[in-house]
Design a protein around this nucleic acid. Structure first.
Lengths: 135, 135
DNA sequence: TGTAATTCCTATTAAAACGATAGACTTTAT
DNA sequence: ATAAAGTCTATCGTTTTAATAGGAATTACA
């Protein structure tokens, strides 16, 4: 299941990408337009900013804005920041690899074999989509 | 993340597929060989039986066995039974479709657009793998 | 210079999901 | 009769998720 965090984060990014100009957009406006709990969205936008996707302006008239062109924001990085590993098991993860406690031999593991394919196919999709492609 | 239920279920199916003959294999043997909590595995095998993947024999000398050829067990059905929907959001699920509360228009939703592709790519993998392919 | 609007940050909570465990019951081979 | 197995239901502890609370810091502007 996709977490709501990721879902809301993607929606917020999309919303910001659709906005004309580079004027900061307030959290409240995004939350209202996308039917998201404002406080929850707040924390999501914060992590998006901390991870280099968004800029912000504080105080009156402040808000959030994209700091890159939508076409330069690949879904791989967005998904990794919001959702975490793309792989369904750590033992096939490129960026978050971990060996399984059970499983003496990855080469012999059916789960490994299957999930490797699933990871590759998902990666393929994420690599072929930037934020611009979702508008 | 793939649940341990699914992981263990897949391992158990693989183990049973590798066993010579159609002799029932005891839960304890599978659990030991695959490093799985026996009680937990018990409940997993039960759902696999209830969903038509396994047969069982009770009493002394009993156990579980595959009731189909590995090549006739597609990963789509295994995943749906163990893990649930293949789609990451209900609004792109073929077998478990649900409309989103938020989101007035699926056609306009960026999450929908992306997750549709992810679903299709995952489905592609699962449809091209039977249990036999994982041995 | 004061006030309102806004982001920033930390902590907490409520509910759900997950993984595992317990124990009694039923069935079967010998 | 007994031991070895699966069956079934209930429960429990932990982690994760989604949301909430509240105040601090910053900024625009009258």
């Amino acid at each position: 299941m996709l977490s709501k965090k990721t879902k809301y984060g993607l929606k917020a990014l999309t919303f910001l990408a659709k906005v004309e100009g580079k004027e900061p957009v307030q959290i409240a406006e995004i939350a209202k337009h996308e039917n998201i709990s404002q406080k929850f969205l707040e924390s999501i936008l914060l992590t998006l900013r901390r991870n280099g996707f968004l800029g912000s302006k504080k105080g009156k008239g402040g808000g959030y804005y994209l700091i890159k062109e939508p076409k330069d924001i690949p879904m791989t990085t967005v998904m990794r920041v919001l959702e975490g590993p793309i792989a369904m098991v750590p033992c096939v993860s490129l960026n978050f690899y971990e060996k399984c406690d059970d499983c003496p031999d990855e080469g012999e593991c059916s789960v490994h074999k299957l999930m490797l394919q699933v990871r590759d196919s998902a990666l393929d999709v994420y690599r072929n989509n930037t934020l611009a492609d979702l508008l």
